[in-house]
Every structure is written in structure tokens, then in C-alpha cells.
């Protein structure tokens, strides 16, 4: 089936926790905020979680409705906070982790910080029962490492307190039904190939399902009638003919770019993604002249049956 407008209504429902991921610059923040906003509009309440200074969420969630809670998590404080139960008390956790030797280790070593952040994420979901919690994840490589850390930590440690933290994360957060993954991508062939590889990793190595594949900024087809008229007019001699040729050239470039996009979607998502389930969660969002706000994206997602 060639792709035209996605499959309105055919989407599986999202789990309570939603992890939104994708390469840098694909529009993760607006899609994540759009999903949280759509959930708040439908259910009255939802939570949007981001990591860092909170500027991204504030930007796209202008005029945020009361039911939408915006939480910012600070990864640099995550470790000691999340480790408190492991060591029995905040004082012991600080003693073991916040010292001359461990501070540089935690600052430089991966996985430890990821585990802390994931544990904070679990706590946020546990503190908001019955609400949709949408996580605006860091860019690709990082976010997969992040989601994998629970399973890896459990397998790596075998037993002990870190093992128990990881096992609880797997049971309560990183499991199908508890969490959905939404992957955001752009309609370019090689980006799409990388995205499918990411979907594969999420399903095989993380053990979660990619419930939505959102293709952002899909260019609109230019008017075929205008292209035909401009091409016809370009045969007239003189300045008008030359000008019409310029217009025809611009429109045909746009037509070609749009065709390349649709061809790439068909080829990658349908041929290579077949049987991987990403096809049924496919959602196309249009290219727009301006930065879309979360409200606009929420409308698009709702109309596509993807909210």
C-alpha cells in the first residue's frame, strides 16, 4: 500500500509512560509536548517531562492548560537521589558517591548517570498514577543507552542492590504495556534507514515496542496545474517565457523533493520495515512555514488518530 496520509484510527493505544526519541533536530520536543497536550485535553491531566533547563518545554507549551504538569529533571543530581534507597539513606548515598574519588567517576562514566535518570523517571510515573507521562528524551544514541541500562544492569550485576533497582525498573517502567516508545524522524532516505535501525534496537535490545513512528516535516506537493501552466508558458519567447521557466524549475524541484520523500518512505518503511510493526504506527506531519506550537502538533496528532 503506498503511503499517503498515514492510517487514521489504526493506531494502537499508548501506554501510561511514553518515551519520545529520535535524532537531534527532528522536532522531538514539539511532538512530545503535542502528545502531552493532547492527553491533557482528552483526560484533563497529563505530565510532560524534560531533562535539562526546561527551556524547550516552556517554548512550545506557551499557554499551557492547567491540567498539564511540566517537570524538569536534572541529570547531574539524579545519581545521588536515585541511589538513596540502595544505600539505605541519603547520608550514606552521599558518602559513597559524592566524594573525591567517585565524583569524577560519575561525571565521566556513562551508565551510572543513565541509571539514575531512569530511576527518577520511574519515580515520576509512580507519583502520577493514571496519568499519561510523556518523556522528551535526549537524542538517539543517548536515549537508547538510557533505556537499555535497566536490562544491562540487571544482567551484568546478577544480584545485589543495583540488580534490584534494575529489575524493578524493568518490571515497573521499561516493559510493554507500561511504556510506549515514539520515534520521531525526518523524511529523508538515509535518516529513515537509521531510524529503522533504531526501532530494531528498541524492540530487540530494550524490549519495548515502537508504537508510533512520526515522520515530521513532510513537504506538501506543489500544484500540478501551476507546474503544467508554467511549463506551457515557458515556451513563449521573451522575458515572460524566461520567468515562467524559472517558476517551472522551482516547482519541479519541489515536486522531485516530494517524490523522493514519498519513495523513501515507501521503500524504507514498507519494504525494510515490513513485519517490524512500525508501519501501523506511521504518522505523517506536514512541513509548515513557521515553528508549529504544541497545540498545532496536538491537533495534527489527534486528526491522524495518533494521540
Amino acid at each position: 500500500m503506498p503511503i499517503s496520509e498515514g492510517n487514521p484510527g489504526a493506531h494502537v493505544p499508548l501506554a501510561p509512560a511514553v518515551f519520545v526519541t529520535g535524532k537531534g533536530g527532528v522536532g522531538k520536543t514539539t511532538v512530545a509536548a503535542g502528545l502531552a497536550l493532547a492527553a491533557a485535553q482528552a483526560d484533563g491531566e497529563s505530565v510532560y517531562v524534560e531533562f535539562g533547563d526546561g527551556a524547550g518545554g516552556r517554548r512550545v507549551l506557551r499557554n499551557r492548560p492547567g491540567g498539564l504538569e511540566h517537570i524538569t529533571l536534572d541529570p547531574s543530581r539524579a545519581v545521588v537521589k536515585a541511589a538513596t534507597p540502595v544505600f539505605g539513606s541519603a547520608r550514606l548515598a552521599k558518602l559513597a558517591l559524592d566524594n573525591f574519588a567517585m565524583r569524577p567517576l560519575i561525571r565521566a562514566a556513562p551508565a551510572i548517570r543513565e541509571l539514575g535518570v531512569l530511576e527518577l523517571a520511574r519515580q515520576v510515573v509512580a507519583e502520577h498514577p493514571g496519568k499519561r507521562v510523556v518523556f522528551d528524551m535526549p537524542a538517539t544514541g543517548h536515549s537508547v543507552a538510557w533505556l537499555k541500562v535497566a536490562r544491562q544492569g540487571r544482567e551484568l550485576t546478577g544480584r545485589g542492590p543495583i540488580h534490584d533497582v534494575c529489575a524493578r525498573l524493568e518490571d515497573e517502567l521499561v516493559s510493554p504495556g507500561r511504556a510506549s516508545v515514539v520515534v520521531v524522524t525526518l523524511p529523508e532516505r538515509l535518516v529513515l534507514f537509521e531510524t529503522l535501525a533504531l526501532c530494531d534496537t528498541v524492540e530487540k535490545e530494550v524490549g519495548l515496542l515502537v508504537d508510533r513512528l512520526v515522520v515530521n516535516r513532510v513537504p506538501q506537493a506543489p500544484s500540478a496545474a501551476a507546474l503544467a501552466d508554467a511549463a506551457a508558458l515557458s515556451n513563449t519567447p521573451g522575458r515572460v517565457g524566461e520567468a515562467a521557466a524559472k517558476l517551472a524549475e522551482l516547482l519541479s524541484v519541489r515536486t522531485t523533493l516530494r517524490e523522493q520523500v514519498m519513495e523513501a518512505l515507501n521503500e524504507t518503511v514498507h519494504r525494510h520495515g515490513e513485519g517490524k510493526g512500525v508501519e501501523k504506527g506511521l504518522t505523517l506531519l506536514p512541513m509548515s512555514g513557521k515553528d508549529p506550537t504544541a497545540a498545532t502538533v496536538a491537533d495534527w496528532l489527534r486528526n491522524a488518530g495518533a494521540a
Binding site: 500544484s223 501551476a226 503544467a228 508554467a230 508558458l233 513563449t236 517558476l247
Partner: peptide, 17 residues
């Protein structure tokens, strides 16, 4: 664009685009 706008041979489709 100016050349096209000032010509008499604009079609509706071209005008819209």
C-alpha cells in the same frame, strides 16, 4: 516573480502559486 505578475498571461494556478 515581478515579470510574471506584470504579464497578461497569468493563469489562476500560477497566480495562486
Amino acid at each position: 516573480i515581478d515579470v510574471l505578475e506584470n504579464s497578461d498571461e497569468m493563469t489562476t494556478a500560477i497566480r495562486e502559486v
